[in-house]
Design a protein around this nucleic acid. Structure first.
Lengths: 228, 228
DNA sequence: ACTGAAGAAATACAGTGTATCGATATGAGA
DNA sequence: TCTCATATCGATACACTGTATTTCTTCAGT
């Protein structure tokens, strides 16, 4: 059997690594949200069969963990400001910006402990900001409080943003004007405070609202630090 | 064809309503987590075919929304304390307790706006606690800050709790003793603050930690309220 | 040149959310 | 009281999921 009879061998499969897999998964998630991430689609994007991925990860959850850790690299600030409040603000805003770039992150934020290298680096940076400003336990309490705040705030912001996109109206426009169900509910008079908020509240933009809440929490932390 | 030939007609299907459907779904989720909730299983629990449910909901997401709203009823306190801090604490602790009873709630918390009747009632109660203590915009900012905090804190707590269950060790035991990956990472010396926290930090219980953070945030709110 | 091991691919399976369709029971109109 | 339209239920179907298993190919070492 001559060379001419034999067909060319199938191209050697391009070598893979976790980095490529994670990048492909992130690309899919950025385009179509978390629900667009399936092992089959990730593999297809790399010209591979689905089962190929199981050499690099052993479960889809692991892939999600890797994705989170990967984008957490974007959170880390370049320099470390001397002011601890500024440092924490940077981390909070960094997380927020990252979540705005990768909205699927909001679905995963706080969902499980982040123990990847970048997750640890973020934790380190957060703790380092407060290092030596109080005893460790106080510092830990402060870190937990601050990051609980911004985790929750970011999730809420993204949730509202999606709702706006789904209806095409800003939250308050919608509540005030056209949401028939909500209008009806408010009209029952059972939610006076809520009604006042909806009709008389100013529709401040999300960034400002995030910053204000963050400032408050940082002030609270400051108050506890200076008094050990 | 006589009666004797004809089989008895199939039993008239038991009438359904959303309440039963949601109850069945919640039962499944309580037992096996959110991933145990499938339309087929919910329907089976009610002796119905899967498609039957689509008369009452038009998508699985709607079912999840109904589930969240249903358990939000458990959050609402009986009486309204005059002290606004106490009122907010009640709501925060109520949410936490509910999430501990229905751990799947943590997966959904903050995931999308809660506009069901009970969700609105919770929002009303939260706003009402601060009503007349400041201008509406400040009140809204305060409410968002507080609930961002406890949403995030609860998610983290449940996440840690699950991680503990998965490894059989408390977070700190695990970090300190046996997690080989983490031990190795800490040993690199790249995470000094984190290392200190892991080895020297006291392992306070989740409830206390939640309460402390909450107190801090409430203090912060108090500071902003009294000075309009 | 042959064998063993490793790795990729194909196939397979049980399960998912939901669209469609055919039968059937129920209520309205004559 | 009978008939017909309408609503409702169940079955079937489809495209897709995560993952186990089995089959085949290719290379390394003897």
């Amino acid at each position: 059997m001559t060379v001419w009879d034999r067909p060319e061998p199938p191209p050697r499969p391009v070598p893979l690594d976790r980095e490529q897999i994670v990048a492909a998964a992130i690309a899919l998630a950025d385009e179509g949200g978390l629900e667009a991430v399936s092992l089959r689609k990730v593999a297809a994007r790399l010209n591979a069969g689905p089962m190929r991925l199981y050499g690099y990860i052993s479960t889809k959850e692991e892939l999600l963990d890797l994705m989170v850790d990967e984008v957490q690299a974007e959170i880390l600030p370049e320099g470390r400001p001397s002011d601890w409040q500024e440092a924490l603000r940077n981390l909070a805003n960094g997380t927020r910006q990252t979540a705005l770039r990768h909205e699927w992150l909001a679905d995963l934020l706080g969902g499980r402990p982040t123990l990847g290298p970048n997750g640890l680096a973020v934790a380190e940076a957060t703790l380092a900001a407060l290092d030596d400003l109080a005893d460790i336990d106080t510092v830990m309490r402060a870190v937990e409080t601050v990051s609980s705040y911004f985790t929750g705030a970011i999730r809420r912001e993204i949730a509202n943003l999606r709702a706006e996109r789904a209806t095409g109206l800003s939250k308050y426009e919608w509540q005030r004007a056209s949401g028939p169900y909500l209008t009806r509910m408010l009209a029952t008079g059972r939610f006076p405070a809520l009604t006042k908020a909806v009709y008389d509240g100013t529709d401040v933009d999300a960034e400002a609202s995030f910053a204000t809440g963050l400032d408050w929490v940082l002030d609270a932390v400051a108050a506890k630090l200076t008094r050990p």
